[in-house]
Design a protein around this nucleic acid. Structure first.
Lengths: 223, 223
DNA sequence: TAGATTGTTAATCGATTAACAATC
DNA sequence: TAGATTGTTAATCGATTAACAATC
């Protein structure tokens, strides 16, 4: 696996998301400056990021959308596909299932867990919900390496410990709690409150600025 | 308003989240190296970030938790508080309401909107839900400047346009769609699928690495 | 005091941008 | 062809880290 910086990974995922939408609209080719505008990066940045995917374009037609999606997949995806486990099937967990449903062929949520016995043993949004007690067995048996924590903050550390003990090496954590994990386990936090604070702050700051092009590309002009 | 880089803003929000938890546990003082471990940054980074808050510590006891929370608030918060509007009260919207509920005294969701007439005109998780048609009037009357988009992708652009037309200058967007907004409007995207892809990739990469300290601080050791 | 931590600057590191020959 | 875009390197920019005197 070639060394790809984290920020490049983030952008590649974004490019793929945009490209998948474009493909859905029937677009076959894109120029770097078109992609750059959608992704809110510079065209040079986009071209440079593509080097890690080995995808190439032509000066006359730009890049073939399908080829880019393939190329990015070769970098980002596990060759044989990968399954993730979701813990917590409340409002948030269900929203995650819906948002994720069939978005990526090589990565899907293959098992969900919940404490509520009424939710167990039936599918929710196409994913079977298991009783919480079966987590170690199910995760281990299915070789799941990625976990999604969508439980209240007070339960998050316990869930993380269980997932890690069962073999999970990457956690997507929605709970507003700092998880302690062993070295080698990756944690990515998504905290709604923090995100909203950031937006509110930046919006206020943007209001102060005199329409300069200062900043990092956010708050871009419309077409 | 002093110029604070976006990344510093992100970290300040994180520090406050951690500090609020610590205060809840009765912790009065912290050293920079303790905060740094929780926030997964270097101690120097933390001390440096604090300079923008004017908060200071003592060599013997470290920083006073309450003073730090105050100092960060002076940088991040609107002096008189601020309200946000939520559009879409499905699973995701409700999860956002619950996660956000009372977490920040100076920033709260003051109005929610939904197309479903059955949801309208009654409170959900403490927030009144208005019929979609009243959005322009309610947002304008309440002077709301921040909006949260928790609707399906196909409706996201229309909602964004409505919010912006009503005066909103910052959008937190959960829909997997690229929003086009006028210059001066800030958009922050939260895409579950992209986040999970990133975690899956980094977890796989971490597995390949030989326990070096390479990387950017993620995947830290437990105590 | 001695040991540890804070506040702050200079040095380093890495990512982004600018530039341009090669290509279509 | 002429004009525009791609692929890739060198220059720039900014953020992070290292270092250390001042402080408790």
């Amino acid at each position: 696996m070639v060394a790809v910086p984290d920020k490049t990974v983030t952008r590649l995922a974004l490019y793929r998301s945009i490209l998948t939408n474009l493909r859905g609209e029937g677009v076959r080719y894109v120029f770097s400056h078109e992609m750059a505008e959608l992704a809110r990066v510079s065209a040079a940045q986009f071209r440079r990021d593509l080097m890690s995917t080995r995808a190439s374009g032509s000066a006359s037609r730009g890049y073939e959308v399908a080829a880019l999606i393939d190329g990015i997949g070769k970098v980002l995806d596990a060759p044989d596909g990968e399954g993730a486990a979701l813990v917590g099937v409340g409002n948030l967990g269900q929203a995650v299932l819906v948002h994720f449903n069939g978005r990526r062929p090589k990565l899907s949520i293959v098992a969900a867990f919940d404490w509520d016995p009424n939710k167990a043993n039936r599918p929710v949004h196409g994913c079977l919900v298991y009783p919480m007690g079966t987590l170690p067995e199910v995760v281990e048996r299915q070789g799941i390496r990625v976990g999604i924590i969508a439980v209240p903050a007070r339960a998050a550390q316990d869930v993380a410990d269980q997932l890690v003990a069962a073999g999970v090496r990457g956690l997507l954590n929605f709970a507003p709690a700092r998880l302690r994990v062993p070295r080698g386990v990756v944690v990515e936090d998504i905290d709604f409150a923090m995100a909203l604070e950031r937006v509110a702050f930046m919006a206020r700051r943007e209001g102060v600025r005199r329409g300069s092009r200062a900043g990092n590309g956010r708050g871009r002009a419309a077409a």
